[in-house]
Design a protein around this nucleic acid. Sequence first.
DNA 1: CAGCCATATCTTTTT
DNA 2: GATATGGCTG
Length: 763
Amino acid sequence: MSIYDALNPNQLEAVLHTEGPLLILAGAGSGKTRVLTHRIAYMIEEKGINPWNILAITFTNKAAAEMRERVDKIVGFGSEHIWVSTFHSSCVRILRRHIDKLGYDNNFTIYDGDDQKSVIKDVCKRLNIDTKIYKERSILSAISSAKDELTGPDELMLQSTGDYAKKRIAEAYKEYQNILRSNNALDFDDLIVKTVELFLHNPDILEYYQDRFRYIMVDEYQDTNTAQFKFVSLLASKYRNLCVVGDDDQSIYKFRGANIYNILNFEHEYPDAKVIKLEENYRSTKTILNAANGVIHQNRGRKDKTLWTANDQGDKIRFLQFNSEYEEAMGIVEDIAEKVKNKEAAHSDCAILYRTNAQSRVFEEKFVIKGIPYKIVGGQNFYQRKEIKDLLCYLKTIDNAQDDIAVKRIINVPKRGIGLTSMNKVDAYALSHELNFYDALKSAKDIPTLGKTADKISGFVNLIQVLRSKLEFISLPQLMQEILEETGYVKELEADGSEEALGRIENIDELVNKAIAYEDENENPTLSGFLEEVALVADIDSLDNANDKVVLMTLHSAKGLEFPYVYMGGMEDGLFPSYMTIIDDDAQELEEERRLCYVGITRAMKQLTLSCAKSRMIRGMTQSNAISRFIEEIPEELMEMNQVIERKKRGEKMIDTIKTRKPYETSSETLKSNSGPSSLNRRTVHKNSDFFNKPYSGVDAVTGNNQKTALEYGVGDTVRHIKFGIGEVINIIDGGKDYEVTVNFEKFGVKKMFAGFAKLQLI
DNA sequence: CAGCCATATCTTTTT
DNA sequence: GATATGGCTG
C-alpha cells in the first residue's frame, strides 16, 4: 500500500511522468493539487530528485502555502527546499539578487495600482496629455498590456506610426518608465518583464537558474500571460522538464493579459509533450456538474472534454428570483441562517459569489443585521487602506527615500501646512536640479519662493532622518510605534472618535501585529523584506477555514476554492454577463464570462443556489435586468425555481423557504421536489411570465416608467455612442420592451444594441 | 492652506 | 451610491 494507490490511472500517469514536457488538462475538481503534490513526492522519494531543483509556481500565496503544506505531509524531508511561490514573488526573489545588472538598486520598491495611478497622473501633467481624452485608467491598461506582451516603450512607439493616440500612449509609457526608474520602483508587470530582461541579457544568470530549477511546475497555466510564458520557457529550455497544469475552461483573466493560447498551443510549442486529461470530478454532485457542463458546452473555442463524476445526483439547482437586491440578500442570508440553525452546515461551508465587488455591500448589511459572521474577500485589500498605506509610506520613505510617490503621500499627513503649491515649487526645483523629491526637500532652504513653508519642510525631513537613524537600534514594530507617536497619527484618530476612525486604529494595530509576526518568522528581518512581503499579498491569501464565517467574494477570487454550499447572486444580463460584454457584442468576451460562470458553478460541492433581482440599483440608477442568459443554458430538468411571494404583512418572512415554495408559474399546483412531471417547461414559463425576456433597460423601476420611449432616430440616421463614436443606424427591431438597434460605426463596425442601454444620440 | 460644497464620472474582474 | 475633482471661502 503506497500513497500512490489512491490515485486514478490518469492521475497516476501524470505523477509518474517526471521527465520532459507534460501538459495536464485538469478539469474543475479533478484533483490536480493532489496530482501535483504526489508528483513532487514521487520525484523526491522515488526518483531521488533533489528538492532544491524543484520549482512550483502557483497564482496566489495561499495556493503556494497550501501546496507546501500538503507536500510536507507526504514527504518525509526536504520540502522546505522546494521553491513554491507565485510568479511575482519568484521574480522578486531573483531580482533582489541581480537587478543591479539592469541598473536598478537592489532594494527597489514595488508599486501597486494606486502608486501607478499617481505616477501616470504626473506623466500626463508633464506631457500635457488631456486626461479628458486619454483616461489615466486606459493609458495604464495600455501600458500594462504592452508589458504583458513584453513590448517596451520604444517598440510600442515604432508600432504606432500614423496612429496618434498610440503614439501618445507610447510617449506616456516611456515617461512612466523613466519615473519608475528614478524612483527605483517596479510595478507588478515589471517584476516579470525585468526578470525576463535580466535572463536575456545575462546568459550566465539564466543558466544558473536553469540548473537550479531542473524541474518546473506551473499551476493555473491557462492564466499565464506572454511575459510569464517567456519566463517559464526560458527557465525550462535547458532541461525541458516542464509540467503545466490548467484548464482552458477556467481561463478568466484575459483582461489581465492571460493568453489562452499558452495552453491551447502547448503541444505545438512542445511537440514531444505528453498530454494527460483529468476528467473525473471528485468535488460536486452530478446535478451541479451537469449544470456546469450545460453552460460551458456553449463555448466554441475550447478543448473538447466532458467532466463526469461518480458522486450522487444530489439536490437540484435552486434558482431564486427576487424583487430587489435587498430581498435577494435577505433571502440568501436567511437561507444560510436556517442551514446553520438546522445544523446542516457551518457558516464556513457557505460562500456567496458575485460578479462585481459592489454587490457585497447589501449582503454585508444583512449579515450585520442578523449577527452572522462573514468575511469579504477582495474589494479593497487590507494594504490599500488609507491608514495602512500612510504608515507603509513612512516606512518606505525611511527605507528608501528615492520613492517620490511615497514621500509625497506622507509629507502632509498628518497636516503640516505643506500644500500643493509648495509641493509644486519643490517639484520644479527637483526637476531643474535633477534631484529626487526627497533630496530637493533637504535643500528647501535654497528654494527662495517657499518662504515660511521651508521651515515646515525641514521639520519633516528632520523627522524622517531621526527615525532613519534609529533604524539599526530598534525593531520594526518599535519603529512603527515611533512613527505613530511622532506624527500623532493615532492621536488624531482617537480625537476623531468616529466608528470609522476606531476601525482605522484597529487596522494600524493589525499592521503592527503583522510586523511582529514577520520578525518572529524570519531569521534576519529587514525593513525592505517586510515591505516586500506586504507588497505581494493578495486579499485571498488571508482566507483561512479556521474561522467559521460565511465567505463573500467575486467569482474571480473564488477560482481554486470549493464550498459545500455556493450561492451565486446577481444572475442578470447586464450584470453577469456584464453590460460591457453584451453591448460589445464580442463573442470572445462573452465566452470568457461564460467560463467565469462555469468556474462559479464548479465551486459548489453539495448544493448550488442561483439568484437574481428583478430590479437593482447600479451606480445610483435603478435598473431592471433580464435573467442571465447563462441560466437558460443550464438544462431545465436540473433546476428548481421559486416564486417571489410579496411581503403581505410587515414582519412576515419575505419568501418561503425552498421546500414549500411554489413554482414560478401562477398555477397553484405545488412542485414536488426532484420528481413529478417536468412542469417547468421553459416555453410555458416564458409565455406566462416574461421570464426569459430580453433586457429592457433604461426603465426606471422606481417611477414605474417601463414604457419604452419613442426613438428620436430612425434607419439611415447618424448617431453618436459614448464608446463607439459615430455611426449610421442600419436597422431597428421592436423587441417589445425595448428597441434593438443595429448601427454601423465608423471605427468599430456593425454592433447590435438595445436602445435603452446604448443611449444613442442623433446628430 | 484647509475645509466645505458642488459636479462629474464611474467599475467588471486583480497579482 | 460613492468617490474624485474643482471652485469657493475663511
